[in-house]
């Protein structure tokens, strides 16, 4: 067992964990933050996307011990009690169907818009290439991210 300490959404967590414990299982089962999902176990679907020190990572491809000392952001930490503009845009543009891919999709979009506040449609599509959605066919998600980019630019937020 190894002792790890991480900050998730600004809150400190510390646990004894097995070295083989996946980060996604740590987030879900130890930190009890269940907005981060498991869809494929092989790093293809992106449902487990989490921000690790600001960068999107697939938390099913990392061990919890590798995240020791890191700052993590999950969907629950994106906007406090309200909704982030990306979340608003996902509602406005019908970018959610079953919701299972949504947290990972939103975090990938968040990382994109932080780096590139004015993405072209092709850039949006590339940014979510690692996130599978089985319901929407992506079009409304792409539109939502474009819409979020516009509202964020207008309000000057990042």
């Amino acid at each position: 067992m190894h002792r790890i300490a991480v900050r998730i959404n600004g809150k400190a967590y510390g646990h004894e964990v097995e070295p083989r414990l996946l980060l996604v299982h740590y987030i879900r089962e130890k930190a009890r933050l269940t907005g981060t999902h498991v869809g494929c176990d092989t790093g293809n679907c992106g449902a487990c996307t989490t921000l690790l020190n600001g960068q999107p990572v697939k938390s099913c491809l990392m061990l919890a011990v590798q995240a020791n000392g890191a700052e993590l952001t999950t969907i629950e930490g994106l906007a406090g009690n309200g909704l982030h503009q990306i979340q608003e845009a996902f509602l406005d543009k019908f970018a959610v169907q079953c919701g299972y891919c949504t947290p990972g999709m939103i975090l990938s979009a968040y990382a994109l818009l932080k780096a590139n506040p004015k993405p072209e449609e092709g850039e949006i599509r590339e940014a979510i290439e690692g996130n599978l959605c089985m319901c929407t066919g992506y079009q409304q998600i792409v539109d939502a991210i474009g819409h979020a980019a516009r509202t964020m630019r207008m309000s000057g937020s990042r």
């Binding site: 879900r28 009890r32 933050l33 269940t34 907005g35 981060t36 999902h37 498991v38 999950t74 969907i75 629950e76 906007a79 909704l83 979340q87 996902f90 509602l91 406005d92 019908f94 959610v96 079953c98 919701g99 299972y100 949504t102 947290p103 939103i106």
Partner: peptide, 23 residues
């Protein structure tokens, strides 16, 4: 009308309850 799915806001917030999420 294209009424927003505000009834399903939990999905956006990561607060949905799928079976594996049950404590």
């Amino acid at each position: 009308k294209p009424v927003r799915r505000d009834q399903d806001i939990r999905f956006i917030r990561g607060e949905a309850t799928y079976v594996d999420d049950l404590e």
